[in-house]
């Protein structure tokens, strides 16, 4: 017996398994970042003083990174839409762009970290720096994870398009949902760390 609803939606719930699965996973991610944001708020409210992010961190670089991530999000959703429209070539291009934007994000981030270290700014310096490094570090790990999945779907995983196109499209959708979530987290991290 095969496992049902791996490709088609179950009639009464309207979903295929992995769709529900990824949303559940994202729900748990919301709680993970929720705890981190909660820690940030609690520590900040309790602190006698708190630096403005812009006085320590580089807003232009972070703005650039925001742009890179939202671009990667739109190319991600376009890659899925291309598969829906049966345009495999366009899918490859869009997903490739997503990967490049992600890579760009990581490069900019590494410049940012490098600049901090060269000014001898480390996580242990202050609660602000601790929060900055921990939150962005965890976010970077999420970006990396997403890129590994995307790279697989761009490269070896794409063979599935020939054998099981619908299931492959589902996979891309699921990977996309995760990738957009990573973007969404950054949309909050950016003002919270850099602008406030």
């Amino acid at each position: 017996m095969d496992i049902p609803y791996t490709v088609d939606a179950r009639p009464d719930t309207g979903m295929y398994n992995a769709k529900l699965g990824i949303w559940l996973f994202l729900a748990s991610e919301v709680m993970l970042f929720g705890a981190l944001f909660s820690s940030y708020i609690l520590l900040r409210v309790a602190a006698p003083e708190w630096p403005r992010g812009a006085s320590i961190l580089s807003v232009p670089l972070a703005t650039l990174n925001t742009m890179l991530l939202i671009s990667s999000s739109v190319t991600m959703v376009m890659s899925w839409a291309s598969l829906k429209m049966k345009k495999f070539g366009a899918y490859r291009v869009y997903l490739g762009l997503t990967l490049l934007f992600g890579l760009g994000f990581l490069i900019v981030k590494s410049f940012e970290y490098g600049a901090k270290f060269s000014h001898h700014l480390y996580p242990g310096d202050s609660t602000f720096m601790a929060i900055y490094f921990t939150l962005t570090g965890l976010h970077v790990l999420h970006v990396l994870g997403g890129m590994i999945v995307n790279a697989y779907l761009w490269g070896p995983g794409a063979k599935m398009w020939k054998t099981a196109p619908e299931q492959f499209t589902n996979r891309v959708e699921v990977a996309g949902l995760y990738w957009h979530f990573v973007d969404l987290v950054w949309i909050f991290l950016f003002p919270v760390l850099y602008l406030l």
Binding site: L32, A35, L36
Partner: peptide, 11 residues
């Protein structure tokens, strides 16, 4: 498990 464990992971 899904919603209560992540905060301890963060902690």
């Amino acid at each position: 498990l899904l919603l209560a464990f992540p905060p301890l992971e963060a902690a």
